[in-house]
């Protein structure tokens, strides 16, 4: 383990204004509101960075545009951008995203969590690790890792 912080001084961006969804004047009781980009983003924007007291949104690790969702085909892809290329926290961040979405989305969904192309030194390895069911399950068996994930997720259950 490297001692000290990996990115000691990250750039902190402003939070985006929470969008208020326009509510129809006469709400239709039976209309379906499909799961969309913004809803997914609302689920994950407040996840805390593993080594800083800032949210992933503030560090621009995730943005709304980096989320692809197809409600019909039950598919979601989140592309995140680590703050530095050699960030060893990338896997933890990816794991947090995966766990949070697993807990928030219906079970029919298939999730694809990726590092944005060209933003990480070991991109392929990280992607492989994050999308391997067995390895994710194994990671969550590890009590220390799970505690860490839970701590990062805590603010997102506001």
């Amino acid at each position: 383990m490297v001692s000290g912080l990996i990115n000691a001084n990250p750039v902190v961006y402003e939070k985006k204004e929470r969008q208020v969804r326009s509510i129809a004047t006469i709400p239709d009781e039976y209309a379906v509101e499909p799961i969309d980009q913004q809803e997914i983003f609302d689920h994950i924007r407040d996840i805390k960075d593993p080594e800083h007291p800032y949210s992933l949104e503030e560090l621009k690790v995730i943005t709304e545009d980096a989320i692809e969702v197809d409600n019909e085909r039950s598919y979601v892809r989140v592309t995140f951008t680590p703050t530095v290329e050699h960030c060893s926290m990338a896997t933890v961040i990816g794991l947090c995203l995966r766990v949070k979405l697993m807990r928030s989305l219906p079970s029919r969904y298939k999730m694809d969590i990726r590092v944005a192309p060209g933003t990480h030194a070991t991109e392929a390895a990280v992607n492989k690790q994050l999308n391997d069911k067995e390895r994710v399950a194994a990671a969550l068996e590890n009590p220390n890792l799970l505690d860490m994930v839970d701590e990062c997720l805590a603010p997102s259950y506001g």
Binding site: V32, E39, R103, P106, Y157
Partner: peptide, 28 residues
């Protein structure tokens, strides 16, 4: 979690967390 209405889904996420954390680490 697969409710047609967004507000319901949001509450469901919160509720799931509340009940799951009764016994921590048992969510999965």
């Amino acid at each position: 979690l697969d409710d047609p209405k967004r507000a319901v889904r949001q509450e469901a996420v919160r509720c799931r967390q509340a009940w799951a954390s009764i016994a921590s680490r048992s969510l999965h």
